[in-house]
Amino acid sequence: MIADSRLAPRRRLGGTAGILLTGFCSALAAGLLIVILGYVAIQGWGAINPAFVTQLPHPVGVPDGGVGNGIVGTIIIVAIAAVIAVPIGVLTGLYLAVYGRGLSAELIRFLAEVLSGVPSIAIGLFAYTICVKPFAHFSAFSASFAFAVLMLPLMIRTSEEAIRGVPTSIREGALALGLPDYGGVVHVVLPAARPLIVTGLLLAIARVTGETAPLLFTAFGSQFWELNPANPMAVLALQIFTYAISPYDDWHRQAWGGALLLILAVLVLNVGARLALGRHGKKS
């Protein structure tokens, strides 16, 4: 109160206005998110039923039908992308955190940063050029490749930070107990960094799950059950895109249902990542 009374009224007014403005913008941002989530939920809820998540898409005029193949396709493509991106991302992060020095490390960090800014459609075209065109065949694998490239910068960054966060004293302790250098890294440092790395992986998966642009010329889409990554495959995000631009009410309804499924999946991944991170934070 005493401090307040000494302030010039103009400064107090400015301060209040600033707080109100930031508060208003925060409310606007949060409100917008809630409106989007709510709108998708309202529009999509009616479309979701057991048939929707288990059946194949049906053409116009044939009732029912679902996006079961798109859900399976999304899981397969993201899983393969993770198999590619995790080892490369974690080992690069390890190099940067533990061994990388000077120019080479800076260069790798810089390139990873640049990579994270490349539009996903450009990465999709890249995947098309090296994974589709030479074989004259669209494939789920080419989509996984594009997704892996998209996940990589995030994996590298979170891995590096996770490993850097493990105190050097722990690694030194391992060395003091007679473990060789690689043993210390493999048995002590990496396990300690794992919660954060898993968090990073979940966020990276959430990041790519909703991507549509890189899929157009890679996974291509399919109306059938397709489990072979060498063939074109249905993907949920792609199905939403196709349905949304169609003229038919039934397909619009299914597009909303698919969008709701995607948002729920990304929400679960994000909350999962948050939980993993939160527990880790508490314990250490």
């Binding site: 899983a79 198999v83 919660p195 898993v198 992986l201 979940l202 059938f224 489990l227 993993a276 250490s284």
Partner: peptide, 29 residues
């Protein structure tokens, strides 16, 4: 403690990979 916390997550990941590898091995239709 950390290892125990993350076992489910790691197990899920491994299971997912095994399943997808299994699916991938299935012959095309």
């Amino acid at each position: 403690m950390r290892t125990r916390i993350n076992r489910p997550a790691a197990a899920t990941l491994v299971a997912g990979l095994v399943v997808s590898a299994g699916l991938a091995a299935l012959p095309a239709l």
